[in-house]
Write a protein that binds this DNA or RNA. Structure first.
Lengths: 338, 338
DNA sequence: CTGAAAGCGCTAACAG
DNA sequence: CTGTTAGCGCTTTCAG
């Protein structure tokens, strides 16, 4: 067991060629004769040789490692994205190194240092708490960063989101058209662009229809906080419709409404979420929600990242993916709504 | 932007010391004077220097990377574990490189090669599909492997599981004590030890009580398969209790029972799951289930792995963590059950 | 197209 | 305790 590591030198010896010849055979786009390639490959297979990615990266300057910075995986939107990211990137010859951050201030410094330590080729940030700080600093250090599902004012940062403002507005229109009179919003974390944009779009949509929300509260993207907010909301305002800043919170809101307050959803109150995580389609919730097409978002994120890794000085882009409102059973559907 | 990479040599120059002195300052457990350390640290901070982990690993032979092989993250038990693994390992100075595998045969070879390529120090496999094959081969190649939530006959492989046989038996006792007469089982994937053990324990428990199950079907750890199985199960056998091989499937089973078949859970049929994922505590399901203490399981897995990385020839161990039956509202509770 | 030689950035003996 | 000297395994000029 624990056999000594087999190096390109061993292969070279067995094949009776130079070590650099072996290297060439395993370097895409190097010039080697067919005969040489075959001979080396045979020897390599016989010894079970594989190039050492780490040694390679020392000289090429590329590690083929992408750092994924993520704060929490409780919201199923993120594991889903992680799975997609990993699969897509593996297809491109990259792998994901995971960096968990509590999202707190001090953690950011540590994460940045660790990202640098591993010489990651690029970074994807995919969580709420990750402040713009991290992104800007890594970017400044010359490592391409793409913000996934998170925006920011700084134009030098690449980002992929859905059109949260438009999404929020659309939900407002939907709820108003449904004849709801006492509309409330349990907002996502206001420290994040998604939380703010969805709220702003929603309020703008209500405003355009001449409707005032009965209440707007913070859910902070936390199930517990949203649940607590819902209790207070009901006690004070008895809303007949609630737009919740993401599905993850919406499940908590519905649970409180139905099981603590004994209300009917959508009979007594309509609930609309945001994301369309798989669970939203489950019969227990059957949640009407605005879909964020995670497959497309992931694909674009990876494209942008690889593009920037390839040519570091390409301009950063902000990309928005459109998502549809998915009609299910948690909210009354307006007559003739399309 | 994209400032030239700062190396230990730069730091040495600025501090007016040798390059190896710089190295020592950043090597835990090397002998340096306080003065030297301070001087070097200052210079390093000024330049923003951090040691290149990849270069280091080339010589130390340790990458401080742990490969996590995982097939799917749909079952929330796994994102939860991933988050814990990442956090715990970061605390130990390691990071997780993710390897997604479709679980299919051919994928295994590719994953193994990639694991080797990155010189991972150790491997954790945390999913259903991962065959023993992968584990044995990596183990044979001298890379420590620990199977998480998965067992295997081969004694040379380290593994951490809950006591699935005992868990299955306990659920049988619980259901029998509850007075259920028509007991069924929607089993986990029978290609996995957990799926088999839970089933075997369950059947043994029923048998000990002189009870025959009305039906035992495969759910393959898939929500859809379990849902379909439930429809057939009800049509044919009208069970009054179902033990489902994990929570993830149990949610699907409950949804079918309640929303398609119009049945009451637990009024018409009691449902018990396995895992106690966070969602099991949500009011919509309120699932009685056997808890797998993921925190403890993760902690033990990491301990075992690091121990084996430290001393490769320490004997592999199989570890079982005990979990409790968590009583909630999805199954009738026997009189005086403790 | 192939081999020889020079490092990538770092750690680990080895002298002093 | 510190500096000097070899490499870790690989890619990449540079000659041939």
């Amino acid at each position: 067991m624990a056999e000594r590591k087999v190096t390109s030198l061993d292969v070279a010896a067995l094949a009776g060629v130079s070590q650099s010849a072996v290297s060439r055979v395993f370097t895409p786009g190097a010039s080697v004769s067919k005969k040489m390639a075959a001979r080396v490959r045979d020897a390599a297979n016989e010894l079970g040789y594989r190039p050492n990615v780490l040694a390679r990266s020392l000289i090429t300057g590329r590690s083929r490692i992408i750092g994924l910075v993520v704060a929490y995986l409780e919201n199923p939107f993120y594991p889903d994205a992680l799975e997609r990211f990993s699969t897509v990137l593996q297809g491109e010859g990259y792998h994901i190194l995971v960096f968990m951050t509590s999202g707190a201030g001090e953690g950011v410094d540590r994460v940045i240092e660790e990202l640098m330590d591993y010489q990651v080729d690029g970074i994807i940030t995919a969580s709420v708490g990750m402040s713009d700080d991290l992104a800007s600093r890594c970017s400044a250090a010359g490592i391409p960063v793409v913000l996934f599902n998170r925006g920011q004012a700084d134009d030098r940062l690449a980002q992929v989101t859905s059109d949260n403002i438009r999404g929020g507005r659309r939900i407002a229109e939907f709820l108003v058209a449904g004849g709801h009179k006492r509309i409330a919003h349990v907002a996502g974390w206001q420290g994040s662009s998604t939380g703010r944009d969805r709220k702003d779009g929603f309020l703008a949509g209500l405003d355009a229809a001449g409707v005032m929300p009965v209440s707007v509260v913070e859910g902070e993207y936390s199930r517990e906080v949203a649940a607590e907010a819902t209790r207070a909301l009901w006690a004070e305002h008895k809303p007949d419709a609630i737009f919740v800043g993401n599905d993850h919170m919406a499940f908590g809101v519905i649970d409180v409404l139905r099981h603590e307050l004994g209300l009917s959803v959508p009979g007594d109150v309509s609930v609309v979420g945001y994301d369309d995580v798989p669970m939203a389609g489950w019969a227990a919730y059957d949640l009407t929600t605005l879909r964020q097409p995670s497959g497309q978002m992931v694909a674009r994120t990876v494209e942008m990242l690889l593009e920037r890794i390839g040519s570091p000085d390409v301009a950063a882009r902000k990309e928005m993916i459109e998502g549809d409102l998915i009609l299910r059973g948690s909210a009354r559907v307006p007559e003739g709504w399309t």
